[in-house]
């Protein structure tokens, strides 16, 4: 289905392009952190909210929590919703309360909820793409084991090596560890899902599933950049990390729309195999 025929995808794409244009427009005055940046920070998460609403509708069409694909779509939708909630809470602290963002804060419930949602969504994604069939081969079992081990070790090295834990604040200690490990967890599952399904996955569902895997990778890039900059005190609102998040929301929403249109297509489709057989 072309972009112009798919009105939902067209709408989301135009909104995305609009936000990118807005983001570009204030880059030369970013250091002033003016009103444009503040409004952008408060508003661009609407793309994630839009994606989550479409996601909940789409997940229901694919069987909701009763099915593997429905569950995957539900958790991706929860992830998007939690991202928007986290952004709104943090923006409230910064621009309304005008206080230093506490850590941990209510925003962390949303952001860590998002990490857990993507982790669970990625797990159901591996089930949907039939990773278990490839796991019969030793080579793929090694890949499935090595990828998470390497990524979690790398995350530990980058974020937690020589990290000073404040053991009087157990929630802080938990979050310090759980964010990078959780992020490494869902990106590992996404990579394993891709590597172990690429030879067997096909059909009209392939593109949607591959876009979902790509969305997880983009979300990881955004989360990784945010954690990295936060750890080193270099994070600035409206900088390229927000662009990464915006792209991630767009790609995740596009994947969800792909499943929505595939569902519509299947509902309208005639019986090809039976008819083709009759004709032959």
């Amino acid at each position: 289905m072309s972009l112009t025929k798919n009105k939902l995808q067209l709408f989301v794409t135009l909104v995305f392009i609009g936000f990118v244009g807005w983001w570009i427009s204030f880059q030369h005055v970013l250091s002033k952190q003016g009103l444009s940046v503040q409004w952008f920070e408060g508003v661009y998460g609407l793309l994630a909210l839009t994606g989550s609403i479409i996601g909940f509708i789409t997940a229901r069409k694919w069987g909701g929590y009763k099915t593997i694909l429905g569950r995957a779509l539900l958790f991706f939708s929860f992830g998007l919703l939690a991202q928007e909630a986290g952004q709104l809470i943090l923006n409230y602290y910064i621009y309304v309360s005008k206080i230093q963002i506490p850590y941990p804060s209510l925003g962390d419930i949303a952001y860590f909820g998002s990490t857990l949602s993507y982790l669970t969504g990625a797990y159901f994604l591996t089930k949907a793409v039939g990773v278990r069939f490839s796991l019969k081969a030793v080579k793929y079992r090694v890949i499935a084991l090595l990828v998470p081990v390497v990524l979690i070790a790398a995350s530990y090295w980058i974020f937690l090596h020589n990290h000073q834990y404040d053991w009087h604040k157990p929630v802080t200690v938990f979050l310090d560890t759980a964010y990078p490990v959780g992020d490494a967890g869902y990106i590992s599952l996404a990579i394993v899902a891709f590597l172990l399904s690429r030879k067997m996955l096909g059909g009209i569902m392939k593109l949607g599933l591959l876009i979902l895997i790509a969305a997880l990778i983009l979300q990881y890039i955004a989360d990784f950049t945010f954690l990295y900059q936060s750890n080193r005190g270099t994070y600035m609102a409206g900088n390229y990390d927000d662009l990464f998040y915006l792209i991630s929301y767009f790609v995740t929403t596009s994947a969800i729309i792909k499943f929505y249109t595939t569902y519509k297509h299947l509902k309208m489709r005639a019986a090809p195999v039976a008819e083709e057989s009759d004709q032959s």
């Binding site: 039939g130 069939f133 067997m200 059909g203 009209i204 195999v273």
Partner: peptide, 21 residues
């Protein structure tokens, strides 16, 4: 065979493996 083909249209060879299982 036709039934399996219906699911293959959706997921490719993975659907065939699922049907076999």
């Amino acid at each position: 065979d036709k039934l399996v083909e219906q699911y293959k249209i959706l997921f490719g060879q993975i659907a065939v493996e699922t049907c076999k299982e």
